[in-house]
Design a protein around this nucleic acid. Structure first.
Length: 112
DNA sequence: AGAATGACGCTGA
DNA sequence: TTCAGCGCCATTC
């Protein structure tokens, strides 16, 4: 199915985020030639059934925060725990120091 | 089918 | 610097 292709690209790219690093929703959208579709990246990750082999927890919003939402049914707190387990510091406001942890790939992680 | 929703992000005041 | 407003669009109601 064509729509699943978008999700597949999201998962493929997210899987390339290195251990101990994070990326933003917009970044992922950008890398898969879907500039401006950060929301769809969020939908793709929300669709995952946990536990997943995709490191979904390494994706945060552009402000450097873990996005908190009741609709996530606790996965936001699980996200914090998993990131801390990788040595990433997450403060009490769910803020992450992007200067230190943001993934900056040297090459385009996804190519058509 | 039409409207609302949302794990987002840029812009401009 | 902060923040409301708007664009985005698949999914859900």
């Amino acid at each position: 199915m064509a729509s699943n292709h978008f999700y597949h690209k999201v998962y493929l790219t997210v899987a390339k985020i290195p251990y101990g690093k994070v990326a933003t929703y917009g970044q992922i959208a950008d890398y898969i030639n879907a500039y401006g579709r950060a929301r769809q990246v969020g939908w793709a990750l929300r669709r995952l059934q946990l536990p997943s082999n995709v490191p979904w927890y390494r994706v945060i919003n552009s402000k450097g925060f873990i996005t908190m939402s009741f609709s996530r049914h606790g996965s936001d707190w699980i996200q914090k725990k998993l990131l801390v387990n990788e040595g990433i510091k997450v403060d009490s406001k769910m803020k992450i120091d992007t200067k230190q942890y943001l993934w900056i790939p040297k090459e385009l992680p996804y190519k058509e």
